[in-house]
Design a protein around this nucleic acid. Structure first.
Lengths: 151, 151
DNA sequence: GTATCTGCAAAACATTTGCAATTCT
DNA sequence: AGAATTGCAAATGTTTTGCAGATAC
């Protein structure tokens, strides 16, 4: 829990607690710490990464609680889940629309602003972004299809 | 093995065999049938869906062969893998750049042309496409990051 | 006849579920 | 006390691995 800065401002536990309450999530100690971790560590961690770090703080923590909590957060819309990996789900407390870049060598997942994507006219032609060499591009949209809307 | 049409032309086994050979993949019967299945059934199937359908044709087929073959195909670049689901990998024989839409109700994965995406200026603002209602958007880029390029 | 391909069975994981124990009010 | 939260242990489901048998050239 070292890095408390977040885009120029300090994120204090009180503010995070209020976000949870506003979304109808009772701010238990575990939930607060998990949310705080996600807000302060923008590394798109997996459930296991979150567990490995927070257990240092809460020795009795179980992975079930991590999974329960993440499901609650995603369901309430304060955290989004990324399926950029093929074997595990990554989580992101930044719910604004942005793209992600995964390095196939070091497995780091970087944030990429959409404005940077639009500056280049054709996403299909894009070969590099933020200095990262692109070899694969995926656009996944989700929602309710035409058929299902008609019943 | 009913639908043999593919964008106006007939895909014959001979052509598919030649694609495999050209890519350095020995065209065994199993591989040919799996590739043929993917080319003729553009439904973005999972390994299990492919297995369930092809075992009707090859009763001795094993899932290991499905996984081995798909790994070979993806490695050689004639099939791409989609991580649009959070619990299984979907496969697509269409390796041209296009987006995918997954219905959260019926789980169908539709193709979406990128030209359709670009006609709308801002992907971030997009609410509907091909009549499908969009509630989630993900852009995943992969490759080698800036740091890893420098060694 | 040697290399490749296939398939069984078991293992390896991430995630989920059932239920009991704990905590909070 | 009663409801919500947590956690253990077992189950689930997908994908991987080791190895033996089958097949192909």
């Amino acid at each position: 829990m070292k890095k408390l800065e977040n885009e120029g401002r300090i994120t204090v536990a009180k503010e995070l607690k209020d976000i949870l309450i506003k979304k109808g999530i009772s701010p238990s100690y575990h939930r607060l710490k998990i949310y705080e971790y996600l807000m302060n560590n923008r590394i798109h961690p997996s459930a296991d990464m979150i567990y490995a770090d927070i257990i240092k703080l809460i020795p009795t923590l179980s992975k079930t609680t991590i999974y329960n909590t993440l499901k609650t957060f995603v369901g309430k819309g304060i955290v989004s889940s990324l399926t950029i990996e093929d074997n595990e789900i990554r989580y992101d407390a930044d719910i604004t629309f942005h793209a992600h870049f995964k390095c196939l060598n070091c497995n780091t997942v970087y944030d990429v602003g959409i404005d940077q994507l639009r500056s280049d006219k054709k996403l299909g032609m894009l070969k590099k972004i933020d200095g990262h060499l692109i070899t694969e591009k995926h656009i996944y949209l989700k929602g309710i299809c035409k058929k299902c809307q008609q019943h």
